[in-house]
Design a protein around this nucleic acid. Structure first.
Length: 258
DNA sequence: ATGGCTTGAGTGTCAAGA
């Protein structure tokens, strides 16, 4: 079973890339972020024709998250329970007995800004929710755009980014808080080449110069981490015409249904 | 240089992303 996450930066623009990538990657579950659309225009029919069930938690213009799966989606839940937030950033569902949590974590804009304070509050709320979810669903994966580069090796220029947004110590502490719940960073379960990133700025030839950050992640609870046999970032879609600025991350889980 | 692209909204130009 392959599970994946991809910030598509508008599903309207990127649907052809998504359909192509679903076929090429043989992913069984794909979490999407920044669909930037309302539920009523979500392309359920096109995805069903490609063999995928789907759930969407969307809004106009900003945010929006979806889970696509070859298996049925059960116990679908939107948002973070008990955390009032008009921004559509979280969607969870159970697929083949495994809890899939799709998250588009806040960007934070600038350290010290109002949006940064919101980001830190939001991360605390999600961690509290996950602590409870893990009791009910021991097999849980948290996939998404975290908007956090966990370590300096996840940053093309750590000196320039030091204490900046996406790299600040409180954000990194929040990421380590997820690990403290027992979750493992699937990418770091394996030896990886250096300078692997999941996002590159559209400007200044960011992708060609590999000036990137690793901010999209798949975290796995212990029973899933034990079965994980690979985790890679697929740069191929970033090379297409009109790409998303993010690349998909995909993890292979070795045991279990389908 | 609070720049440099891209998207959505909406038709002139701004907010937001990371």
């Amino acid at each position: 079973m392959k599970i994946a996450t991809w910030n598509v930066n508008s599903l309207k623009v990127r649907l052809p890339h998504v359909l192509d990538w679903l076929a090429a990657s043989q992913a069984d579950v794909l979490c999407l972020q920044e669909t930037k659309m309302e539920d009523k225009v979500f392309p359920y029919a096109e995805l069903e024709a490609a063999g995928f069930h789907a759930a969407h938690n969307g809004q106009k213009t900003y945010n929006g998250v979806a889970i696509l799966a070859r298996g049925k989606l059960e116990d679908v839940r939107c948002d973070i329970p008990g955390f009032a937030d008009p921004q559509k950033r979280v969607l969870a569902a159970t697929v083949d007995g495994r809890r899939i949590v799709c998250a588009y974590m806040p960007n934070g804009q600038a350290v010290g800004s109002d949006k940064y304070e919101y980001k830190l509050r939001w991360l605390t709320a999600l961690a509290g929710c996950l602590r409870e979810d893990l009791q009910r669903w021991p097999e849980l994966a948290l996939l998404g755009d975290y908007n956090i580069a966990p370590e300096d090796r996840d940053v093309h220029d750590p000196a320039a980014w030091k204490d900046q947004i996406l790299c600040s110590e409180p954000e990194r502490a929040a990421f380590r808080g997820f690990l403290g719940l027992g979750l493992a960073d699937a990418f770091r379960l394996f030896e990886q080449p250096p300078k692997i990133y999941s996002w590159w700025d559209y400007r200044q030839m960011g992708f060609r110069l590999n000036r990137g950050l690793r901010i999209d992640h798949i975290l796995l609870s212990p029973p899933l981490a034990e079965t994980c046999s690979a985790c890679v970032i697929d740069k191929a879609p970033r090379k297409l015409e009109r790409p998303s600025d993010h690349a998909p991350v995909i993890a292979t889980l070795g045991v279990g249904p389908a």
